[in-house]
Design a protein around this nucleic acid. Structure first.
Lengths: 222, 222
DNA sequence: ACAGAATACTAGACAACGTCAAGTTATGGA
DNA sequence: TCCATAACTTGACGTTGTCTAGTATTCTGT
């Protein structure tokens, strides 16, 4: 299909004139439509031409708003990280008075909940073969911001810990992996195959408790 | 590209006559070539026609060995679960004399190691939008077998636990998620973006220790 | 050893896709 | 009002997955 391997170097070139109101409207509609399309038929079904058909425009109209097929996926990824960060922040704000361990638990729960509520975004966010975050600076910023929320939560459990200690980072990453693994497995893994009667909400609670306790009580952090 | 949504109902129809030796040779070569291709250029680059070109056959030759593009991915998935199961079994066998907690640790480490050593297989194994395991009975069997290895390891830590208790299953799934999350993040996540100096081997050890201890000491299992 | 049948492969066609190129219309700031 | 530019259309090209139809190769029973 003639998809050149050369990266389009991010669509950061700002238009000399601001986009017209009609333009941003169309762009928003196209984005929504593509998320819905992926949700209904899977990632492989996302096609520029199908999007255009659904939006009742020519097959090249989307090409104007997004530099390429990767461009629209990158837009979804950015939206995803912005939403994720917002949910992590709000989860922590809601439990500001709670004990440190409980905050960690709530942040991890928020991560998993985000994934379950935004499956399309979540899946695309972690597919570097489709859209590599490194190529989109603002996306990268929001990804690192979200990660920082988890670092903060762990730091609250271990006020004396040295944030620059490699072991500290390892524990944070391990906890991230725990929440991420639950989300990934529930979304894409054969969980219900192996464990037919599993209730997802209860599962998320159990996992959050297990991981956050391990994180709070770990002796790996000096 | 005319990829119909209708599933080809698995390639389980056994040929009336056994495949010729030349045939299985070609099939094996095509499989290897496709794994290499994915490894080099990513999943999107896997094309029937490119495979054929590399194998110096017509563009329809691969189509004979694999019912469709999904068919070849399904073959990779099957191979992946067979290998994974073998590694889990061997990890446990190697530490049969070890205390129960250590066995759990080793099994989880084996899971993560498998993913890092077989990144192409691992990625395809958990992409139901590309190949849904449920449609391929023998693949399903091997997937459940591999999962059972983890169940056994957890059960060894809690000899009195009731395997049919939902909480037991939840803990097993949570531990699976932990190992799975580490593998997924290291392979596809922006880990090195957020944590530049992270040493993977050390990270895997830390995660395995953290999770297996949590699994061994959890009070969630009655 | 040899005939028949299934396997293994080739060749050509088709629709759909992503993208390039060039042209046309609509919009908003001066 | 003017006009630069955003917003969109039309047409074309090469590549892809898959269907159909045909040819060649290999195995197996007698």
């Amino acid at each position: 299909m003639n998809r050149p391997e050369a990266k389009p170097k991010a669509p950061s070139a700002p238009p000399a004139r601001r986009a017209s109101s009609k333009g941003v409207e169309a762009r928003r509609r196209l984005l929504e439509e593509s998320v819905r399309l992926i949700g209904e038929q899977g990632l492989a079904a996302l096609s520029f031409r199908e999007m255009a058909r659904r939006a009742n425009v020519s097959h090249q109209a989307p090409y104007h708003h997004f530099t390429s097929r990767e461009g629209i996926l990158a837009a979804i990824v950015l939206e995803g990280f912005v939403r994720l960060d917002a949910q992590l922040v709000s989860a922590r704000a809601r439990h500001r008075a709670a004990p440190a361990g409980e905050i960690l638990r709530q942040v991890m729960t928020a991560y998993m909940t985000f994934a379950l509520e935004n499956p399309v975004h979540f899946r695309v966010m972690f597919r570097p073969d489709i859209v590599s975050i490194g190529d989109y600076p603002d996306t990268r910023v929001h990804a690192m911001l979200a990660f920082q929320r988890l670092v903060d939560a762990v730091a609250e459990c271990h006020p004396d810990a040295d944030r620059t200690d490699p072991r500290f980072l390892e524990v944070v990453n391990a906890l991230w992996a725990g929440a991420h693994g639950v989300a990934t497995l529930v979304l894409d893994g054969p969980v219900q195959l192996n464990s037919p009667g599993l209730a997802f909400q209860s599962f998320v609670n159990t996992a959050a408790t297990l991981f956050s306790e391990a994180g709070a009580l770990t002796k790996l952090i000096p």
